[in-house]
Design a protein around this nucleic acid. Structure first.
Lengths: 255, 255
DNA sequence: CGCAGGCATTGACGCACGTCAAGGCATCCT
DNA sequence: AGGATGCCTTGACGTGCGTCAATGCCTGCG
């Protein structure tokens, strides 16, 4: 991997990253000793499909996506990962998807064999890895639920709710401006279209359909304001999914 | 859970179940001591959505599905689990989906707290759990890839390939009859339609479209014969996914 | 300053599929 | 045996969206 990504320093701030808080000091010291911080530019590929990755990583800043180039040339995005998420493959097999940066991203990487050794020695670390994977699994299932909606507007509404629910507190993507709920879309229309199993044109129409119906306001293509949260939840069809506290905080502050 | 499922005995055969082979004898003895074997009838619910499950389970026979009843009344199936798969939720939180049997099913269950204690004491068991979750994650991602195909025929082709690839060696679902590759569809059309994010009518048309084009033969609704494997793989659009050895065996025996 | 490239948007058109409705064919029960 | 039930299948119709094409806007570069 030394030919990819820019080495930007050692493990500055590793212990501040959410999953690592609370680990015992000696383990943190061992982790920091084998950790490298790297940065990637927009679109840069971190790992290729079917590669036997020699490292595992945790995202420090920005967003990565898992994707696959289909035989017919279509690009499918099967996962988005944000700050604190783990990527790579522990313990078995090659990657089935490639990993690329969406926007600027910074990651902590660990050599895979050394990380696995630590994992075997420290139950706390193995538990951390397991919780990371469970978290990914939850994300994948939420995702599939969104994909099972027939109409593009419904899938888009589902994505907007996912943004609030799962990633709202990351990089301030969901926030209250002037007592309005504002969202930053962290993807281009083309990428988001791949994510929602549709095309940019249909996605654009879906955005403007929601705007015409008064559910959202498009300030810029990447900056929207939510006008009717409950209508969006109805459209998404999964308003009863688990709502984390930071999201409930946002909602309760909407007067 | 004592009011659901039929207790059919203790842990007969637990050690024969794929994920448990190779565990140390003392651990197996402890597992067997807290294990109950239960059977469920078609459609029977094993756990409700949002329930705090008090047990974890492994499938001994048959197939379970994870599903969610949407606000608009639609049922979405987000996962199918087969022999050897783990279900339930280790270490954190309530279920986000309900679990039901698809056809007859038998499972081994363990009280969750006792199982987690064993997990903490035996690294081998924690590793087993982790591999189970990684396996589920792989399945979820393959699934999403299938769902991102626009046309129902493509998604169906993807499912048939998934059946070969991931579940072919389970319950003999994929096999060679008379030098023909035969598949057993382990789901009703309605269930499969929910799984493929479509409706039974469209699914029926997709089956017959594949038959009209000579890719498959419908012997019965649940028993099909594959005539043109490579065309199906092309349609599915993911022919380069990892192919396990049992599937390659099947293919190589097609002369 | 003007041109080029990338991205979002809008329009037109045709098709795949969701929807409603009816019919066929099993199994099961009385 | 006859009716009922449940599932698969087929038909007809309308529409959401994939597709192709053109336009507008922004950024950056010569």
């Amino acid at each position: 991997m030394d030919n990819r990504g820019n080495r930007t320093g050692q493990a500055d701030g590793l212990k501040m990253l959410h999953p690592f808080t609370g680990l015992p000091e000696p383990l943190l010291a061992e982790l920091e000793a084998i950790c490298t911080r790297r940065s990637y530019a927009h679109g840069q590929v971190i790992a290729e499909e079917m590669e036997h990755l020699t490292f595992v990583g945790f995202i420090a800043k920005g967003m990565l996506r898992m994707q696959k180039l289909q035989a017919d040339g279509r690009l499918s995005i099967v996962g988005l990962m944000v700050e604190g998420d783990m990527f790579g493959r522990v313990f078995n097999g090659p990657l089935h998807f490639s990993i690329a940066a969406t926007g600027e991203a910074e990651v902590y990487t660990f050599p895979r064999d050394a990380f696995e050794t630590l994992t075997t020695e420290w139950p706390e670390l193995e538990r951390l890895v397991m919780l990371s994977i469970l978290n990914e699994l939850d994300a994948a299932r939420e995702w599939m639920l969104i994909l099972t909606n027939y109409r593009v507007t419904e899938r888009l509404a589902g994505f907007l709710m996912l943004l609030c629910r799962r990633w709202g507190n990351v990089a301030n993507l969901a926030r209250i401006d002037d007592s309005r709920l504002s969202l930053t879309i962290p993807l281009s229309r083309a990428d988001l279209a791949h994510f929602l199993a549709t095309r940019p044109e249909s996605l654009s129409r879906a955005f403007h359909a929601l705007a015409d119906d008064g559910l959202i306001v498009l300030r810029t293509p990447y900056d929207i304001e939510i006008q009717d949260l409950s209508a969006l939840m109805d459209l998404a069809g999964s308003e009863d999914l688990f709502m984390p506290s930071h999201f409930m905080d946002l909602v309760s502050r909407l007067s």
